[in-house]
Design a protein around this nucleic acid. Sequence first.
DNA 1: CCAGACGTTGTT
DNA 2: GTCTGG
DNA 3: CCAGACGTTGTT
DNA 4: GTCTGG
Length: 239
Amino acid sequence: MNFNLSKYMCGRVTLTKESVPVNHRFAKQVNEAELVPNYNIGPTQKVGVINSEEPEHLQFLSWGLQITVNHHPTLLLNARADTLLERKTFAPLLEAGQTCFMLVDSYYEWSTTSKANRHPYRILLKDNDLFGIAGLYKRIVDEQTGEETIQFTSITTEPNPMLSKIHDRMPAILPIGHEMDWLKPQANPKDYLTMLQPLNEKLLQMYTVSNEVGKLTNNYPDLIKPYEYPAQPEQLSMF
DNA sequence: CCAGACGTTGTT
DNA sequence: GTCTGG
DNA sequence: CCAGACGTTGTT
DNA sequence: GTCTGG
């Protein structure tokens, strides 16, 4: 079996808020973290994460868990929810309660259902609120310096009907309002998996955005604006 | 995830 | 086409 | 015991 | 680090 390691879903997110109301469930974490609105966060970049060790703090961690595959260092951005307990890399983390979630207010997805109309979409809650994407984290100690860092990967699951129109996976968005349950120790590792269901599409909205978002160095408010693409005729495979 | 590169040796 | 870097 | 692996998505 | 295969 050949694996292509360079392709992932759920590889871009945003955290555009500077603050939230004081009675918001994430008020403590967000309002103490001195947020800088970010419209284009990608792999290896710092993303706001809350983990089971310090659920009261929003930390900014580099996105990706590094492992070695075929002698090559490989960055894992995503872990599949359905095989978490079968994977040597992920099962020990789940069993040890090394759970976390990315705190974001949208993610980008490039539609793959049509070659002619391959555009980036922005997906967010209908009420534009913050949400959590489930993940697993790992402490890494540098042998030389003794320096300790935290790496993490986000979790993907089956798409709901709305998102299945553009992609065959979606991020494991934690149940709205119950995000902290993901950080609590579970009696059985399997109990974690029940929290990794596709989020109901009724809570979500999506729209196409400019392909300027593809370039990771672009980062400005216009990236999250709706952008209409002229309809392209599908390529016919015959004639 | 997309964008962008895609090569080696020796010398500074 | 396929890998690397961000 | 040691050696070697350890992973996901998209496209066809 | 930890598991699997030999």
